[in-house]
């Protein structure tokens, strides 16, 4: 049973999530989990195990049916839509399998987008986006659009975007799912670097090889935690 701890970035307590799709489908059946600050956790499980639902709840894209989800000390179940949007924009950074970049915006504009909603000034936004793109090795491709970038480059833009508001938590949903193995390794080493720099990372994957980058693996099946596996480097 996870206890609320001041130094936990995320705390899930007895979280249930059901969907009404003609019949009631239970995606999460009472999950409790906490992510200490600076930790690197992988959630692993087959498709339909509830791992994406878990990620959506932690990221504030969805709300739990029962139980509480706390991110950075804020109870998301008590937050309004606007507050959850603010949390998505400033406290968590998403990295998706399909990159989810805005097709008509350049790399810099994509990275700067969370800062638009976070109320940053124009110049500061661009500067921050440029620095982050340089950090992920795309300093030369600032004004390219997603279609002019390779899959690996797109995912690095997405990672830079996730980092833009300096979030407390990085959520990566199958980040290597749409790139080749070699590119995937480079993306994972980028996430490793972010963790080494002190970021809290929550990774969702179905691949053991990818999950092995984390400090611990949370195995989920049928909406419940099966076991937690601690990994040593």
């Amino acid at each position: 049973m996870a206890q609320a701890d001041a130094d936990d970035v995320v705390t899930l307590s007895e979280v249930r999530k059901t969907y009404d799709l003609g019949g009631v489908v239970e995606a999460l059946a009472g999950v409790s989990l906490s992510l200490p600050r600076g930790s690197y956790t992988a959630v692993m499980g087959p498709s339909g195990s509830g791992k994406s639902t878990l990620l959506n709840l932690v990221g504030g894209l969805d709300t739990a049916t029962e139980g509480t989800v706390t991110v950075g000390g804020r109870d998301l179940s008590a937050a309004t839509e606007g507050e959850r949007a603010a949390i998505r924009g400033s406290r968590v950074g998403f990295v998706f399998q399909t990159f989810n970049l805005m097709p008509r915006l350049t790399a810099v504009e994509n990275v700067a987008m969370p800062l638009v909603f976070d109320g940053w000034g124009r110049t500061e936004r661009r500067e921050r986006a440029r620095d982050l793109l340089a950090d992920v090795g795309l300093g030369e491709r600032l004004d390219h659009r997603p279609t002019e970038l390779s899959g690996g480059q797109r995912q690095r833009v997405a990672i830079a975007r996730a980092l833009a508001p300096d979030p407390e938590l990085i959520l990566a949903d199958e980040p290597t799912g749409n790139v080749d193995t070699e590119t995937g390794e480079r993306i994972m080493s980028l996430l490793d670097d972010l963790h080494a720099a002190g970021n809290t990372v929550l990774l969702v994957t179905h691949e053991r090889r990818i999950a092995a980058h984390a400090e611990r693996i949370v195995h989920v099946r049928d909406g419940a935690i099966e076991r937690i596996e601690e990994l040593s480097d």
């Binding site: 839509e81 949007a85 998505r88 998403f94 909603f117």
Partner: peptide, 16 residues
């Protein structure tokens, strides 16, 4: 629709 989803994921409120 997808762009709207992206904007919301990076912090856009319904109002935005």
């Amino acid at each position: 629709t997808r762009e709207i989803g992206i904007m919301k994921a990076v912090g856009a409120r319904n109002r935005d």
